[in-house]
Nucleic acid binder design. Structure first.
Lengths: 201, 201
DNA sequence: ACCTGAACACCGTTCAAGT
DNA sequence: ACCTGAACACCGTTCAAGT
């Protein structure tokens, strides 16, 4: 009995988050009313508020469920043998996987992040983790003699993440296809950034 | 008589935009009510709506007045003799000039841009212009033999702007000071990206 | 023409009442 | 416990009425 309730709780909550995410993608966060979310979830306002604390709480839930696109992309870098193969793979995965709607939702969330201090802290710590992971991968590649040892891993990681985030923002403006067309240049740029000029092919 | 009215019109409108911008920085776009804007501008709702079509129209006005931070920073690149001196100068200017509030306002505007198709088009065309200007500066530097001739100017410009936008976003998360500390690394990275490895110092 | 402030339709959220 | 839907305080916007 107890477990069934807990499961229903999670199921209903997930349904509401999913319905809300669809609304946010279609209309944007602040243009979708709670009535819209209720309609999409096929529940009354009272019921929705039984599973969800507030409209902001829905965004919080989506952030916790999905984390940031960038962080997801960089995760596999941790166990990679060749840094560049893994990083190029992450870039290709980004171009292949990311759809316009995902970008809209991610950007919508990023926007709301600026308005709610606790959401801002959440996204800051998520980005911090991604940066630390990437810096660790860079440091290991340096030990193997692949990446220029004179570079500070943390700063290199910050520059790479900035580049990716900036590209994702451009994809928001000009479309995912145009960003995909940029990737060969970006890969070359990353290699030049990270490899000692004398060693560069 | 006619001119005086037009001047009053512009003055009042500018005052309203300025008051609204202050509110947006303090509370965010969607947390500031029109009542807040009215109070900040010391005008009644009816009067505010006499000078401004809607809440969105205020954002539109702010975009048109200020354009994007990135575009402003890249403008001087047009007349520069040495591309790298000019570009590094732009990066330093960004770190020196940009305050946390400006970043918040810019990000707030970027966010609303995603929700309003006409605002989105406005920011797309503004970014396009900035990219074209930067690409032209890169092409001229290539003719002088400074930048690697094998690079496509448009793609190089896109990568540089992505890097800057990403850094500005990071400044939103971690503060302007941390971004400033990144700049030496970023400058080196930009040089490596754009200069032929054989020529790099 | 410029400005006011009450009024309108709608929003996020709550809560008494049902099952 | 789960759910409903009317009700509350507030929002963006309008408009009749004043000067």
């Amino acid at each position: 009995m107890r477990t069934r309730d807990v499961n229903l709780n999670r199921q209903r909550r997930d349904m509401i988050l999913k319905a809300a995410a669809e609304c946010f993608v279609k209309q944007g966060f602040h243009a979708t009313s709670m009535k819209d979310v209720c309609a999409a979830a096929k529940l009354s306002p009272g019921t929705v508020y039984h599973y969800v604390r507030s409209k902001t709480d829905i965004i919080r839930g989506i952030i916790e469920d999905e984390q940031s696109i960038t962080a997801d992309l960089l995760q596999p870098l941790g166990e990679a043998d060749d840094f560049f193969v893994a990083f190029y793979g992450a870039l290709d995965a980004m171009a292949a996987m990311v759809k316009a709607e995902d970008l809209r939702l991610a950007a919508e969330i990023a926007a709301e992040t600026l308005r709610q201090p606790d959401l801002h802290a959440l996204s800051r710590s998520a980005t911090s983790e991604a940066l630390d992971g990437l810096a660790a991968a860079i440091a290991r590649s340096q030990e193997r003699g692949q990446i220029d040892r004179s570079l500070a891993p943390q700063k290199a990681a910050a520059a790479l993440v900035a580049l990716i985030d900036g590209l994702l923002w451009q994809a928001t403006l000009f479309g995912v296809e145009r960003m995909a067309a940029e990737l060969p240049f970006v890969k070359q740029a990353v290699a030049r950034m990270l490899i000692e000029p004398e060693k560069a092919r």
